[in-house]
Design a protein around this nucleic acid. Structure first.
Lengths: 112, 112
DNA sequence: ACAACATATCAACACCTATTCATATATTAG
DNA sequence: CTAATATATGAATAGGTGTTGATATGTTGT
């Protein structure tokens, strides 16, 4: 058994909803979302993330800690630097779906 | 001219990222996420949402305003009541993907 | 017109959180 | 060992935000 796909999961549990919301909230900050997107491409060090996004290494590290704790990203040490990358491919799917949603915001508009 | 799944690379603009983060942030609140999930099933009135989730109509209305403004939900008036439902199916995909992510929190992956 | 109901809006408060700065820890080179 | 680099952590603060209660708006009946 490798992976089991669950279609539309009935999330009635409070814990599950809170856990879901927690992940969405993490992606709900522009800075953090930028960091996620930067790590989605290829493993990248903290300093390089900070340099590319023009952020302080401290701030990047703070966000990385949250993202790592939430199992969104993972860090792998290579010498002095630590390279961060996406833990799995689901986050990319989530973002792609949301991009699709943003791409076609307007469909029907009767009452406004 | 038809939109398909576009890769995550296409969102480099600051506005797009902020817009994306805005949507994720909206889904990042447990109460709001519950409201979204309730509306995903079938169009439901404000009062029924409040009753089912045990929330004040005022709070539900407040959240609905944000969700409607963000084009996540849409409201349709029927007499005194206003029924809310998902604007499109993308949100459901986003949630499903995130549920899949939560479903497999730990999975060692070296090769993909 | 009025009353009753459904939803929306306003103001205020309490809580949370993103950011900054200083400091600490970890790794490598000499 | 020390020095230099890379990352992490701690505290403090400013701005954001969810929630509540009162009030307003809108709709349907009598």
């Amino acid at each position: 058994m490798k992976k089991k796909r669950q279609p539309t999961v009935s999330i009635g549990s409070e814990d599950a909803i809170v856990q879901l919301a927690d992940l969405f909230r993490l992606m709900g900050d522009p800075t953090r979302l930028r960091i996620i997107l930067t790590c989605l491409d290829v493993p990248i060090s903290v300093g390089d993330i900070a340099a590319r996004l023009d952020l302080s290494p401290s701030l990047v590290s703070h966000h990385l800690r949250l993202l790592k704790a939430a199992r969104v990203l993972r860090g792998e040490r290579r010498g002095k630097q630590i390279f961060y990358s996406a833990l799995d491919a689901h986050i990319r799917c989530v973002i792609d779906d949301m991009v699709a949603h943003v791409g076609e915001p307007l469909d029907i508009e009767e009452a406004e």
